[in-house]
Amino acid sequence: MADEKKPVETTGHQWDDDEGYPLKEYNNPLPKWWLYTFYATIVWAVIYWVFFPAWPTLSGFTKGTLGWSQYKQLDEEIATAKAAQKPFDDQLAKMSLKEISQDPRLLQYAISGGKAVFGDNCAPCHGSGGIGAKGFPTLVDDDWLYGGSLAAIHETIDSGRTGAMPAHLEAHDGSFNTAQVENLTDYVLSLSNQPHDAAQAFKGKALFNGEAGCNGCHGDLGNGSLKGTMEGEALEASVGAPNLTDGIWLYGGSRKAINQSIAKGRNGKMPAWGSGFEGFGRKLDPLSIKEVSLYVHTLSGGSF
């Protein structure tokens, strides 16, 4: 036998009662669990208003007795992180790059920090992990333009570098004609053992070490300002002229790319992130520059 329905109060509304089957609306009470949960949320809201920022007023808003705000929380989080880093940071600030590189624990810390700085500021051009891109040198090999020692890397990051390959073609305000630029191109191709026209390269060589003065930066043998010499004398290393004999190219090593480099010049710019800052990017504090220098140094194996 079916359960008898418990008698429940109705709302008093009645429809369609013409035919003797009145439609009534039960006034069922809300389930107890629901009702008490609802009351609990109201109580919670009142407690929240007391402790946390809640209601707008005419001139501001109620701040709550805890004085919490997301901006204060941010400041506290930053302060906590800074305090945790302080013992390390103090040591890093005092020590020279070389000293840090000899302390494995500090080096580990500096490299972790440097990696974060690199990812955010350097990777956009030099690629994730320093793999490089056309026009932006790779940092994972031991081929350097301005030197791969800790000191040289630090100087590059701190003060920036500006490439100074001039344009040579007359049409680009240089002083050589198309044929001469072609000759130079063939000579540069020959330096890295690429297919070239020997006769043109012969003429190019004379220009290279003569009228065009390429050897002043690239050296008599074209092996760059770091390793090269001109008439027995070491070159100015800070010029950053690349080694043309090693098959590593910043702007491409094809005939066309080399020709473009000679004709139009190349003026790649490494911005300064520290003392020489010129408004590009975000200026880095000296500690970050130290850290990122150590990180970059490890990328190439730190062989210099």
Binding site: P124, C125, A133, K134, G135, K269, P271, G279, F280, G281, R282
Partner: peptide, 10 residues
């Protein structure tokens, strides 16, 4: 200002 215009072109 974070990247150069050259970077944006590429």
């Amino acid at each position: 200002g974070k990247y150069s215009s050259l970077w944006h072109q590429e």
